[in-house]
Design a protein around this nucleic acid. Structure first.
Lengths: 173, 173
DNA sequence: ATTTACATGTAAGACGTTACATGATTCT
DNA sequence: AGAATCATGTAACGTCTTACATGTAAAT
């Protein structure tokens, strides 16, 4: 069901086509929250439309249909977000690899850690660039929630990066 | 394919039955790396046995079969762990919720954050208890890789907890 | 004796991946 | 004209969830 709410969430922030949704999944959403393929998005957004949770608000060139969230969709989204469901499902291939580091000898573990340190640094820098854009669009008003969420991503990759370096030090020492 | 390697990894650290594997998934592995159900584990461990990557090393009471990783299994596991595959898949319902916080009004966002702060603190404390056990089993020798991985979990929930508190402050201020 | 925990499994349906199919518009 | 990008979709196959079925051994 999560894909549903991921899509509703994106559309609640800004209307868009299936294609645009797929592009937005390549950003932060798909990178560290919930991954989805294009071929999964199109059928799901159609189901959302059939269920009245989104509606077509524009038809453009190349058969493009722009969807927007409906009041019913907004209500369902709110219910899901505020419903305190513990035991949330986690599937993270990257963390799984790190979690299984004890299966390797020290030399292999070192190599994986070096690779991880470089990868998390790259992600961190890419996010820094994206967040720069978000931040520049705000005046001196109240803190936009977007910035809080961007900060969560930054901290995540920073903590991963710092742990990788620390773990390498422990192995080398 | 990740479930395969999660199981191979657990069995490479210690032989065990399907039931024991399911129990071990309830710990750190399933909580913040890769989730799996009991009904998924039994068929997969049988497939691993059919493929010669694990083998039955003991049969106990109540039809219990204890599996151990084979050399072929160890080799496949090593290859997967050291193969630098970027674009790893992430599906994290908890992070998705946080990522969609901008869809809520401030009052609802605050409630979700308060809930999140409490949940991550609970996880942190639970992990602290588990790590205490792991740490007590080691003499003064070289740093066991298990401890590095435990530290990763601790840092993850700590950073989540700290971010939740920080985000609440930003909203309140 | 009854309950709890151990132990393994299957079947139906939902969800997700890979690969392919099709065509429109813009850019060079 | 040709290439790149925009745009939507389907079919086959693999993975995961939910719910059920079955029985054994230990604990109270």
């Amino acid at each position: 069901m999560s894909l549903r709410y991921a899509l509703l969430g994106l559309l609640s922030q800004e209307a868009g086509s299936g294609y645009q949704l797929a592009r937005r999944f390549e950003g932060g959403m798909g990178r560290y929250a919930w991954h989805a393929q294009q071929s999964q998005i199109y059928p799901e957004v159609n189901r959302l439309a059939a269920d009245g949770l989104v509606s077509v608000v524009d038809e453009g060139p190349r058969h493009r249909r722009t969807y927007a969230i409906t009041p019913a969709g907004r209500e369902q989204l709110r219910r899901w977000l505020t419903d305190p469901d513990d035991t949330p499902i986690v599937r993270n291939e990257q963390i799984l690899r790190l979690f299984l580091l004890p299966c390797l000898d020290r030399e292999d573990a070192r190599a994986v850690l070096r690779h991880q340190a470089a990868a998390s640094l790259r992600e961190l820098e890419a996010l820094h660039a994206t967040v720069g854009e978000v931040g520049s669009g705000t005046g001196g008003g109240p803190v936009p929630v977007d910035l809080l969420v961007a900060e969560l991503g930054l901290r995540y990759f920073q903590h991963l990066h710092e742990w990788s370096l620390w773990a390498l030090e422990q192995l080398d020492g």
